[in-house]
Amino acid sequence: MTFSEKLMDLRRKSGLSQEQLADRLGVTRQSVSKWESGTAMPELVKLISLSDIFGVSVDYLVKDYLEEPESAGGGDDLSAQQAVRLEKKVDELTNYVKGRVYRFDSKTRIFGLPLVSIRFGFVRNGKLSMDNVARGIIAIGNAAIGVVAIGIVGVGLFTFGVVGLGLLSLGIVAAGLGAFGVMALGYLALGVSAVGVYAGGVAAIAAKIAAAVSAVAPTAIGEHASGSHVLLWGDGLTAPEVRAFLLEHHPDLWQPLLDLFSSLGAHIK
């Protein structure tokens, strides 16, 4: 039998309603209903409480192949072998409840942080605890925080992920001093949709300069552009033409930005 079947059988044999069992456990009746329908699994402490209430072992509750109830036993009667088994089961259940996540932290540490930290895998019920977040100089995981962060969600100086937040950020959604992604937000933002002080892409909004198919900024370069100073794509633009336009309105523009936006303006389409 499965856990849900065993729970329902034990509750009925004990003459308890779902509401009565919920009251003894300090949970809602809906929680007990979900356990018995197999759509949810109780937390470790609740499994131990169920073991005590029904006088069966935690092993019996969670192992489908155990059909005969095993006594939960008393503290003085618990053998060393049973204690080892129980400790192992607690570890297994903890991993199950928290989610199956691969964890690794290198022994080498810098400023108290692991050089490499990895947290990767399945998280139960979509709930992500800080214990499942990779935190290190180099962090890799579902969620990662580090100097270099690689993950579905990354936070750090240099981030690479679906969602990235950092000094230099690369992702589908990216935010940072330099942001590069499908959606980018930053001091320098490059993406399909980009918003920043300086922005480039398909659609860009900037506080100073924007170069995009559709550009909105005080200085705007694009096929469709709006701003105080506008350079339209027309029949095409060359890098020297864009450079001359930028220098006219921003004579002190930092050389790398001048080179970048000269190139962007010449390759909008």
Rank of each mutant, 00 (worst) to 15 (best):
T2L: 11
F3L: 11
D9N: 12
R12L: 14
E19A: 14
Q20A: 14
L21R: 04
L21C: 06
D23I: 10
R24L: 14
L25R: 06
L25Y: 06
G26I: 11
G26T: 11
G26C: 13
P42H: 03
L44D: 04
S49Y: 00
L50E: 05
D52W: 08
F54R: 00
F54K: 01
D59H: 14
Y60S: 01
V62S: 07
L66H: 02
S71T: 11
A72K: 09
A72D: 02
A72N: 11
G75T: 14
S79T: 15
A80P: 10
D91E: 15
D91V: 11
E92M: 12
T94Q: 13
V97K: 08
K98L: 12
R100M: 13
R100H: 14
R100P: 02
V101E: 02
Y102Q: 09
D105M: 08
K107P: 06
L113W: 10
V116R: 05
F120V: 08
F120Y: 15
R124N: 14
M130L: 14
D131K: 15
A134G: 07
I137V: 15
I138W: 01
I140N: 00
G141H: 02
I145A: 06
A149N: 05
G154I: 02
V155G: 00
F158S: 04
V163G: 03
G164M: 01
G166N: 05
G166E: 04
S169V: 02
V182A: 12
V182C: 06
M183E: 07
M183V: 14
A189F: 00
A189R: 01
L190S: 05
G196S: 08
V197W: 03
Y198M: 07
Y198P: 00
G201K: 03
I205L: 13
I205G: 11
S214Y: 12
V216Y: 06
I221M: 02
H224A: 14
G227R: 00
G234W: 03
G236S: 10
L237K: 04
E241T: 12
R243N: 12
R243M: 10
A244Y: 07
L246Q: 01
W254L: 11
P256A: 09
L257D: 03
D259N: 15
L260G: 03
S262Y: 03
S262H: 03
L264V: 10
G265S: 05
I268M: 01
